[in-house]
Design a binder for these strands. Structure first.
Lengths: 125, 125
DNA sequence: ATCCTTGTGTCAACCATTAGACACAAACTA
DNA sequence: TAGTTTGTGTCTAATGGTTGACACAAGGAT
């Protein structure tokens, strides 16, 4: 599996932001490790059907966050450690779980309902 | 609890879309039932700190989806049944759960990791 | 009937995002 | 070294969202 990056044209969220989030998650989750190379701007832009500047912006913002490092001619790679020290992986999943549960509860679902729904997706022992 | 509608200014997602999603979820979840009245355009716009047209767009799109009905002078209310027939509530939660699990898996998390993370948020048995 | 409330429509202006093209600099490659 | 790759920067044009203001129409309240 090389890379799964997609854009949803019907989503009003700006493409550069959709891309930024996906890459940030992939890096934080560890699916993309330090030193791993990302697709060149023009290639990814062509694949996704967007302008070069759009991909460049996603890369640039991630670089400012310390997740990526870019060099002319050298391409763009995942930054060495630093920003994603340790437990970043666990924290990411924990945040996702907390967000999901909080949203469900705020919509009036009971814990039991939530557990039942989850039981349809994974083996809750 | 009257209504909890918030906007995140730092989120590039357009405000009208943030609002639209929150209202759609509240209605589908049944927290807002048929006939329930929504805040007047000007009041909600004032509370959220956005222009009237922004709230109007969210209301308009939800009306086109059949979730709301608006009448001049009469306000905007949740549409009577129709679009949210039955099981809409269960389907909403099911979709949320499926989405969460799929996203976690695509980030390389194992089912066991996911279950552990969820266990910190709710009483899994 | 009169007044208030509320949704609807229009308008001009501003800002953000994107597209598409081009040039340039630095790193890699043969 | 020479040529290619790749990120960076600039520019124009187009699109879309937001603001703020205003007017208007229709339902509700007194």
């Amino acid at each position: 599996m090389t890379l799964v990056l997609t854009l949803q044209p019907d989503d009003p969220t700006p493409p550069y932001e959709q891309l930024r989030r996906q890459l940030a998650d992939l890096i934080t989750a560890g699916l993309l490790g330090p030193g791993d190379r990302l697709p060149p701007l023009r290639q990814l832009a062509g694949d996704l059907g967007v302008a070069v500047g759009t991909v460049a912006r996603a890369y640039r913002e991630l670089e400012q966050e310390g997740l990526l490092t870019s060099r002319r001619g050298g391409g763009t790679r995942v930054a060495a450690g630093g920003q994603v020290p340790a437990g970043g992986r666990r924290q990411l999943l924990g945040g996702m779980a907390a967000e999901f549960v909080a949203r469900a509860r705020s919509l009036g679902f009971t814990d039991e309902e939530i557990i039942v729904a989850l039981g349809r997706q994974l083996p809750l022992s």
